[in-house]
């Protein structure tokens, strides 16, 4: 995420403002990236660069709640699933309150937990990584575009 932040900040990757996401989007601060990694402002820089309607959860940044699947909780296996869903209620409520239908998260562990929570609590959200969104909102120089687009 630090790298993506630097690419956009330094203009190595340009964002096309017309392609920015229009729908409300929120961001999940992963414990190891925000609280323990200190990258919460970089995440917001990216969110605002890619989305027109970024809505923070409350609480957020280093005070954000764990997705409820951290510390190895998901790979511990199915016998822990019920407990994982019960304690994940706090996160599900946090997401619902933002009204966002897309949650961006850079952590693959949070990613799986949020998808499970969406099914469990009927959140109807789409969970996405930064790396999935960036290619949809960037403004590529001509020599990097696919041949058919170049012709246009």
């Amino acid at each position: 995420m630090q790298a993506f932040y630097e690419y956009i900040r330094d203009g190595r990757i340009k964002i096309d403002p017309a392609k920015k996401m229009k729908e409300p989007v929120t961001y999940q601060d992963p414990c190891n990236i925000s609280r323990s990694g200190g990258l919460w402002e970089e995440a917001r820089y990216l969110m605002n660069a890619m989305c027109e309607d970024f809505r923070d959860m409350a609480p957020n940044r280093e005070y954000n709640h764990c997705c409820g699947g951290g510390g190895g909780y998901i790979p511990m296996g199915p016998q822990f699933r019920k407990r994982r869903m019960q304690s994940g209620k706090v996160k599900a409520d946090q997401i619902r309150e933002t009204g966002a239908k897309v949650v961006v998260v850079p952590c693959h562990n949070c990613f799986d937990q949020l998808r499970d929570l969406s099914a469990e609590y009927d959140l109807g959200i789409q969970v996405m990584h930064f790396k999935t969104i960036i290619p949809h909102v960037w403004d590529l120089p001509d020599h990097l575009k696919p041949p058919n687009e170049e012709a246009n």
């Binding site: 414990c31 609280r35 764990c66 510390g71 909780y73 511990m76 822990f80 407990r83």
Partner: peptide
């Protein structure tokens, strides 16, 4: 230790 805490450090 494994089931009631994710070591989130909050």
């Amino acid at each position: 230790a494994y089931g009631d805490c994710t070591a989130c450090r909050r």
